[in-house]
Amino acid sequence: MQEAIVLLIAASIIAFTHNAYNRNGINPFRRPLRVPVVHGSVVDSLHAEAIRVVDLEEARLFVESGGRVVDARTKEFYVEGHIPGAILFDYYQLGTYCDLVLPLLAQDELIMVYCSDYSCEDSELLAKELYSFGYRRLLLYKGGFAEWRSADLPVERGE
């Protein structure tokens, strides 16, 4: 029993030290973000700074107009195919991609975030992280790449 406790204490010390120096480390005591997410075209004064969920048609128009698109999936999925012009921002390597991508995003521009499909939460989680970094004009395309591809819309491959 004592040996198991020694192991647990040693593991905790190493783990928290590593986490502190890991670029993708997390603050375990951070509070969950409570950011409003609204569906449809509801943009009233109450939800002026909410993350707005868009459907396929709105996403298509946004991409065609040259809007800024962020792909929250992993690099493997991104390389296989992504929405044209999308920037890779792997949500699970937040620290690494914050350094790479945030300098490319202006805080006042409209940014659309997507991931794989309706079952995937990474786009919403990433949008909330972006919100916490001060980005307030965020669109969330929940249909994701699966819906985009199944609608025969243009797809870009590679990095």
């Binding site: 190493i14 590593h18 375990p28």
Partner: peptide, 17 residues
Amino acid sequence: GPLVYVTAIVLPWLELL
């Protein structure tokens, strides 16, 4: 919440040790 994050940080290292 903190419990999930602490588990996510510590558990892999405990397994490794």
